[in-house]
Computed example of a mutant assay.
Amino acid sequence: MSLADKITLSRIILAPFFFFFIKAEFIPRQPAIVVLWILFAWMEISDLIDGKIARSSNHVDSFGKLFDPFADVISRVTYFLAFASIGIMPLWVFLIVMYREFGILFLRALLALKGTAMGARPGGKLKAGTYMVAGLLSLGLYTVQIYASNMNGVGFGSFANHPGEMAEIASVLHTLTSISYVVVAIATVLSFIDYLVQFKKLYK
């Protein structure tokens, strides 16, 4: 296994820990948030560097073209599931993401049976960018929720009623996060159409 593939594999291994640290309330929230930011940063950064390493070392092959998007699906679906489970990501957007991701995996599997690999598409890269922004905003919102709840000494949902700067930050993040998920839904549908068009060209 090449270095690029090992970096890709790390996303699959670390993804469940992101879900665990959000849901494991017995772990103190402040250190958990630090771990969550580290995990999120690595999952996104590693997606950028594994491809560059593969190209620079001439290790671009059919396995990598399938393994990298598979790892992307595992990592991003996992952190979206985590955000949906705590009420930050709308469930309808999560369903659209799930349908798209597994639909693309199915199309890639059909092409693989014919010995053809479908690489990344422009629509897929745009979609990945919207996923990253939505994930970043969601984690930022969750962080504000935690700190606001600690300041109030009550539950997570009370941050919106906290007076002053914290409430203002929370309100802005909530609005931006909501908008980002609408953008995610649109980009996800457009990306699926892009891949479907490419699939029809390759599946002969």
Rank of each mutant, 00 (worst) to 15 (best):
G155S: 15
F156K: 10
F156M: 15
G157P: 01
G157H: 06
S158I: 04
S158F: 00
S158V: 01
S158Y: 02
S158G: 09
S158Q: 11
F159G: 00
F159N: 02
A160W: 07
N161P: 07
G164Y: 05
G164Q: 01
G164C: 08
G164W: 07
G164D: 09
E165P: 10
E165W: 12
E165F: 15
E165Q: 12
M166K: 02
M166E: 03
A167G: 15
A167Y: 09
A167N: 14
E168Q: 14
E168M: 14
E168Y: 12
E168I: 11
I169C: 08
I169Y: 04
I169D: 04
I169R: 00
I169E: 03
A170I: 01
A170D: 02
A170H: 03
A170E: 02
S171W: 04
S171Q: 10
S171H: 05
V172H: 02
V172F: 03
V172W: 01
L173Y: 03
L173W: 05
L173M: 12
L173A: 02
L173V: 04
H174R: 14
H174Q: 13
H174N: 13
H174L: 12
T175A: 13
T175R: 10
T175D: 10
T175F: 14
T175C: 08
L176V: 06
L176M: 13
T177N: 03
S178C: 07
S178L: 09
S178A: 14
I179A: 07
I179M: 09
I179H: 03
S180I: 04
Y181F: 15
Y181Q: 00
Y181H: 10
V182R: 14
V182L: 15
V182N: 12
V182H: 12
V183N: 02
V183G: 06
V183H: 08
V183T: 06
V183W: 07
V183A: 13
V184I: 08
V184C: 04
A185S: 15
A185G: 11
A185H: 00
A185C: 10
I186M: 08
I186S: 07
I186L: 10
I186C: 09
A187F: 14
A187I: 09
A187T: 15
T188V: 10
T188F: 09
T188A: 15
